Amino acid sequence: MKIQAVIFDMDGTIFDSEPVYMKINQDAAKQLGGFISDELYHSTVGTTMGESYSILAKGLADDFPMDKFADLWPILWDEYVKENGVVLKTGMLELIQYLNANKITKALATSSYRHEAELCLKLSNLRAEFATIVTGDEVKNGKPDPEIYLKAANNINIDPKNCLAIEDSNAGAQAAINAGMQTIVIPDLIPVSDEVKKHAVAVFESLHDVIDFLKT
């Protein structure tokens, strides 16, 4: 089946940003007297911001100030990213070059909000590479619901079955699979679930492997 578009997740797929988000969330919680374990943070990966807050709230003390946390962590994140920049995942630039050379459309479907997505893309000089960007605050239902992937495909007017999705999380991969897309998983913080393995077209170690896949 011909691939006409590649739709990327962002955090953990394009950028090596999940460890940064985890550190910032943990630092913000600590400043407010709370504690977010690695395991608790991992359970939020791939979900929308609202869903992440709900998951964290259940794992934190009943009197933990989630409203203050929601205000604080984006400030800490902005400061960190503006000072340190963002790190691309290995093989991302080479994959972009391959897609451009073969006239394959690129799109982005991220659970992050518009502000975070735009800042990361600006700092990495990748903003112009994507024909459309759909963010978590622009959909009603977050991953693993397929809405965000279906919206991205609709925006570029390409049938989902002719789209290849690249994800790092189980929730994200399931969203793309539910949208009827061919889905590649490159795990980051969390191992790939057996259910996702059943339906993904491949599980790879890096974005370099995607180029070889597209050549076959």
Rank of each mutant, 00 (worst) to 15 (best):
V203W: 04
N170D: 12
A173I: 06
S193H: 05
A173C: 10
N155M: 03
I186N: 11
Q182V: 00
A175C: 07
A200C: 12
K198C: 13
A175Y: 09
I186D: 07
L189S: 00
D194N: 15
D159Y: 05
A202I: 03
V201M: 15
D159P: 04
V192P: 09
G180M: 06
I177D: 07
I184M: 15
P160V: 00
D194E: 15
D194Y: 09
H199Y: 05
V203F: 01
I177H: 06
P187N: 09
D188T: 08
N157E: 12
V196Q: 11
A179M: 04
P187D: 11
A202R: 12
A179F: 06
S169W: 13
D194H: 13
A202T: 04
P160C: 03
N155G: 00
N170A: 08
A176E: 11
V192A: 14
K161D: 09
I184F: 15
D159E: 15
I184T: 13
D168Y: 13
D194V: 12
T183N: 13
S193V: 01
A179G: 04
A173Q: 10
I177M: 07
I184L: 15
N155D: 10
I177R: 09
V196P: 08
K198I: 05
M181K: 12
G180W: 07
V201T: 14
N170H: 04
L164C: 02
G180S: 07
I156D: 02
S169R: 08
S193D: 07
Q182A: 14
N178S: 14
P191T: 06
I166A: 01
G172C: 05
D188V: 07
N170V: 04
V196K: 09
C163E: 01
V203E: 12
N155W: 00
P191I: 06
I186Y: 11
V192Y: 11
Q182L: 11
M181G: 12
P191E: 09
N157D: 08
T183A: 05
A175Q: 05
I190K: 02
H199V: 00
D168L: 10
A173G: 14
K198Y: 12
N170E: 05
L189A: 01
E167W: 07
N157V: 00
V201P: 11
P187Y: 13
G172Q: 08
L164Y: 00
A176I: 02
K161C: 08
C163M: 02
V201A: 13
P187F: 10
M181Q: 12
I158R: 07
K161S: 14
K198S: 14
L164Q: 02
T183K: 05
S169H: 10
N162D: 15
K161A: 10
I158C: 14
S169A: 14
T183P: 06
E167P: 04
V192F: 13
P187Q: 12
V203A: 00
D188W: 09
C163T: 00
I184Y: 13
N170I: 10
K198W: 11
N178H: 07
A176C: 06
A176P: 06
C163A: 03
I177C: 08
L189K: 02
I166M: 02
H199C: 05
H199R: 11
I177P: 10
